[in-house]
Amino acid sequence: MFLLLKHRDLFMQLLKRDVLMRYKGSFLGIAWSIINPLIMLTIYTFVFSVVFQARWGTAAVGTNKTEYALLLFIGLIFHTIFSEVVTRAPGLVLGNPNYVTKVVFPLELLSIVSLFNALIHSIISIIILLLAMFFIAGQIHLTVVLLPLIYIPLCFFVLGISWFISSIGVFFRDTSYFINIVVQILFFVTPIFYPVTALPESFQPLMMLNPMTGVIENARAILFYGNLPDWVWFIKTLGISLVIMVLGYIWFKKTKKAFADVM
Rank of each mutant, 00 (worst) to 15 (best):
R8Y: 14
M12Q: 15
L15F: 02
L20I: 12
M21K: 14
G25W: 08
S26F: 06
S26T: 05
G29D: 13
I35C: 01
I39F: 14
T42D: 13
Y44M: 07
F46H: 09
F48K: 10
V50I: 10
V50N: 13
A54P: 12
R55S: 13
G62T: 11
N64F: 01
N64L: 12
E67M: 05
F73S: 15
G75I: 01
G75E: 04
G75K: 07
F78H: 04
T80Q: 04
T80H: 02
T80A: 06
T80D: 12
F82I: 00
F82A: 13
V85Y: 00
T87K: 01
P90A: 01
G91Y: 08
L92M: 13
L92E: 13
T101K: 02
V104N: 07
L109M: 05
I120K: 02
H121K: 04
I128C: 13
A132F: 10
I136L: 08
G138M: 15
I140V: 14
T143Y: 14
V144G: 01
V145N: 15
P148D: 04
L149K: 11
I150N: 11
Y151Q: 02
P153C: 06
L154R: 05
L154N: 10
F156T: 02
I161R: 06
S166R: 05
S167T: 11
V170C: 03
F171R: 07
T175I: 11
F178G: 14
V183F: 01
V183S: 06
F187Q: 01
F187N: 05
F188L: 02
V189R: 14
V189M: 07
I192P: 08
Y194R: 03
T197N: 04
P200I: 12
S202K: 04
S202G: 13
F203N: 10
F203T: 11
M207P: 03
N210P: 02
N210V: 05
P211R: 01
E217Y: 15
N218Y: 02
A219R: 09
F224T: 08
Y225V: 07
G226A: 12
N227L: 06
L228R: 02
L228W: 12
P229K: 04
V232I: 07
W233V: 06
T237Y: 10
G239W: 15
L242W: 11
I244C: 08
I244S: 15
Y249E: 00
F252G: 07
K253Y: 12
K254E: 15
K254I: 09
K256Q: 12
F259D: 04
V262Y: 06
